Amino acid sequence: MTRVRTAEPGQRGAVRRDDAGSGAWRARVRRAVRGAFRPGPWRRGPVLAAAALLLGLLMLLHARITDHAGLGSLVESFLPWFGLFVPVLLAGALWRRSASAVAALLLPVTVWLSLFGGLLGDRSQPGGDLVVVGHNVDAGNPDPAGTARDLAASGADLLALEEITPQARGVYERALATAYPYHTVQGTVGLWSRLPLSGTRPVDIETDYGPLAATRPAAARLAYNRALRTTVTTDQGPLAVYVVHLGSVRVLPRGGFWTESRDRGAKALAKAVAAEPDQRVVVLGDLNGTMDDRAFAGLTARLRSAQEAAGDGFGFSWPAEFPVARIDQILVRGVRPERSWVLPPTGSDHRPVAASISW
């Protein structure tokens, strides 16, 4: 015979055993139902896992992204910054306790490290035979004289300037005359040197004027010229130096990321370098793009980035206040970069870039 109560009649808190049994049974049912509908750690966070996989594939296959409206170039210009999405997704995965999302993050982490992991450390070496500096001095620079003094104090043997205006040209020539007895200015670009120069000429890189450039008078073309080539005489032999300012890139409301002028200039510059007879070549300039951009494949196939070979970190140079991209480049062939670095800001919207090279 089943006992109905667990305490004497009249005792407070008395509980029926059949009630207790049914309550425990109902609790077990509720737990089973909740367990059936609550996903485990490998089923949680499917959106986070998908986002992690898409991020990894985006970085892995960036070269296959269409360049319609400049989309591919835009992605590649800021490709290193896509790594910032990894800690964001990781925080979400930990909050959701999603094992699948954490596992999916292995793809973007691996891809990012394979692309940029080599840039995290210091790759510089002591020594060097020649120090070169390149700087877009900015047409709107409010203090060109101060910029010239800062650049002269860098100790550079070669000083390449871009975006020189007719109004500021005299300022740079006077301020740099003592430290650099040799110089040439071709249009808006110039080179100041401690060593003799010869064979100087402008280089047609078909910038903003495109095919119409050839129809302009020679004086007008030179005034707006944005590239030069010269030979620097060194104790070790001749060194071909190019100073370049490629066309601007713009984000247009209807046209997307406009790179036509820059891309045309990059192809013309790659063609000129390919035809260069000297084995030792240095290219300094504002290329308005990073070396990850597909537009520079012709250049990177023939030249080596001093920053990638001998820099410390990414070496971002633009904008000066908070650099987010390396668009000012020093590229070499036939010489070895020993060290590459970014100089402190001047009055320009770019930071100067420098490299020490040896034979």
Score class of each variant (00 low, 15 high):
residue 2 T to P: 01
residue 3 R to G: 03
residue 5 R to E: 15
residue 7 A to K: 14
residue 19 D to S: 12
residue 21 G to K: 04
residue 23 G to E: 15
residue 29 V to Y: 13
residue 31 R to S: 15
residue 36 A to R: 13
residue 37 F to H: 05
residue 45 G to R: 05
residue 47 V to P: 06
residue 50 A to K: 03
residue 52 A to E: 00
residue 52 A to G: 15
residue 53 L to M: 13
residue 62 H to N: 15
residue 64 R to K: 12
residue 66 T to E: 13
residue 67 D to T: 13
residue 73 S to W: 09
residue 76 E to M: 03
residue 78 F to S: 09
residue 80 P to A: 07
residue 81 W to A: 11
residue 86 V to G: 05
residue 93 A to S: 07
residue 103 A to W: 02
residue 106 L to F: 09
residue 106 L to S: 12
residue 109 V to L: 10
residue 110 T to V: 12
residue 110 T to A: 15
residue 118 G to C: 09
residue 120 L to T: 07
residue 122 D to Y: 03
residue 124 S to L: 05
residue 129 D to K: 07
residue 130 L to P: 03
residue 132 V to M: 06
residue 135 H to D: 01
residue 137 V to F: 00
residue 139 A to K: 01
residue 139 A to R: 00
residue 141 N to L: 05
residue 143 D to N: 02
residue 144 P to G: 00
residue 148 A to D: 01
residue 155 G to W: 04
residue 157 D to H: 07
residue 157 D to Y: 04
residue 159 L to I: 14
residue 160 A to K: 02
residue 163 E to C: 00
residue 172 Y to I: 08
residue 172 Y to W: 11
residue 173 E to M: 10
residue 176 L to E: 01
residue 180 Y to D: 14
residue 181 P to F: 15
residue 184 T to Q: 13
residue 188 T to Y: 06
residue 197 L to K: 00
residue 197 L to C: 02
residue 198 S to H: 07
residue 200 T to E: 08
residue 203 V to T: 11
residue 206 E to T: 12
residue 208 D to F: 08
residue 213 A to M: 08
residue 214 A to P: 01
residue 219 A to G: 14
residue 219 A to C: 03
residue 224 Y to K: 08
residue 227 A to M: 03
residue 232 V to I: 01
residue 233 T to L: 13
residue 233 T to G: 05
residue 234 T to G: 02
residue 235 D to Y: 04
residue 247 G to Q: 04
residue 249 V to M: 03
residue 253 P to F: 01
residue 253 P to A: 02
residue 256 G to E: 08
residue 267 K to H: 12
residue 270 A to C: 09
residue 271 K to T: 15
residue 283 V to C: 06
residue 283 V to W: 05
residue 285 G to F: 03
residue 288 N to S: 04
residue 289 G to V: 05
residue 292 D to V: 10
residue 295 A to P: 09
residue 297 A to M: 00
residue 297 A to I: 00
residue 299 L to N: 01
residue 301 A to Y: 03
residue 305 S to D: 13
residue 306 A to V: 05
residue 310 A to D: 05
residue 316 F to K: 02
residue 320 A to Q: 08
residue 324 V to C: 08
residue 327 I to A: 11
residue 329 Q to L: 10
residue 331 L to H: 04
residue 334 G to Y: 07
residue 335 V to P: 02
residue 347 G to P: 04
residue 349 D to T: 05
residue 350 H to V: 02
residue 352 P to Y: 01
residue 354 A to I: 03
